Computed example of a mutant assay.
Amino acid sequence: MRVIRCKDYHDMSRKAANIISAQVILKPDAILGLATGSSPIGTYQQLIDWYKKGDIDFSQVHTYNLDEYRGLTYEDPQSYHYFMRKNFFDSVNIDLANTHVPDGADSDIEHACTSYDAMVKAAGYVDLQLLGIGRNGHIGFNEPDEVFSKGTHCVDLTPSTIEANSRLFDSPDQVPRQAYTMGIQTIMHARRIILVASGTEKAQAVKDMIYGPVTPKVPASILQLHTNCTVVADAAALSLCPNS
Score class of each variant (00 low, 15 high):
H100P: 01
Y74N: 07
S107P: 01
T200I: 09
D103E: 12
A30W: 02
R85S: 07
N65Y: 12
M119E: 08
M119N: 04
M182H: 10
N93Q: 05
P172R: 07
D117K: 00
A112V: 10
Y69P: 06
P40L: 02
T200A: 13
I94P: 04
L32V: 08
A190K: 03
S221Q: 07
I187C: 05
S166I: 01
Y9Q: 06
S244G: 08
I31V: 11
A105I: 04
V3A: 02
P28C: 06
S59T: 12
I4M: 13
Y82K: 12
P144R: 09
V147A: 11
P159C: 10
T200H: 10
Y69W: 15
E75D: 11
G134F: 12
I31Y: 06
R70W: 11
P159V: 10
V231K: 01
V3H: 02
A22F: 02
C229S: 12
S160T: 15
T158D: 11
S239P: 09
Y80E: 01
E146T: 14
Q46L: 04
D117L: 00
N136P: 08
V120C: 02
D173H: 10
T73M: 05
Q174R: 13
L96I: 14
R135M: 13
V175K: 12
G54D: 06
G140E: 10
N228A: 13
V175P: 10
Y116S: 04
T43D: 07
D117S: 01
